[in-house]
Amino acid sequence: MTANAHLEQPARAAPGTPRNGSPQQFGRQAVTAVPMLWLLVFFALPFVFVMKISLAEADIAVPPYTALLTWVDNKILSIHIDLSKYLFLFEDSLYLAAYLGSLKIAAVSTIFCLFIAFPIALFIARQKPETRIFWLALVMLPFWTSMLLRVYAWIGILQSNGIINSVLLELGLIHEPLALLQTDFAVYLGIIYSYLPFMVLPLYATLEKLDETLIEASADLGARPTTSFLTVTLPLALPGVVAGCVMVFVPAVGEFVIPALMGGPDTLMIGRVLWDEFFSNRDWPMASAVAIVMLIVLVVPVMLLRSRGRHSLGHG
């Protein structure tokens, strides 16, 4: 954990370092170029486009925003940048409330996903290799149907004349149907259910690689199962925990469909605000500004998580 531990490199690392200009290095560059290109095409370029729109002004035109660059008299290039959208994000408390609402829902859902997914992943990882695929398939199976269908299935289960309420009424446990749908509870349930596999899979991937003898070693050294889990399994599963949390948290923040279908009227999430800006207000620049800030709000905690994960892993 101390800094000097990182300074001392293992002696074996030296022969592995590539020399400049060697074929291996070219190969490595080619290999890293593919994801870089991917990032450029599917992340950087769209980001720049959206950024550009966020700096324009809304207009009744096709497209419905002003150009940033215009030629005046075909001679002078005039640049028109409008930062008012970003300022407005701070003027109206709605945006802050929506961002915080989204972050809260995403964070709570992520934590629940983690607590539910960890035992599942651990269970699967401890099965015989031949039977693991079966359990993994059970986790993955719902993904082969449309997400919308699965959300509707939950609506069918939760609604006032749905399965849960019918059974409870039949058993005489309740006399009035419980309001399960159109509540924050339903939103959490929908998000946790939908994103659970995104948590299970990375956790499974790290736990599957976990050397069972390490657990035995800790037991041998006097650790009870709980202690063994906390001091060995959990720290070693940390990369999976971080990856799973990112994969659940990030899309959950931007989630639109689940709160729209399962949430109550007062469920306020940033995805809805963005939708309103784009479709109800037809203010593409404002919608873009909301999206850009959402991205920044997301990227910062992800970076923090990543660096934390890397730090506690040492050289990983």
Partner: peptide, 11 residues
């Protein structure tokens, strides 16, 4: 026990 693989905790 001293394990064949040593089973040192890598973290």
């Amino acid at each position: 026990m001293m394990f064949q693989s040593y089973a040192l905790f890598p973290h």
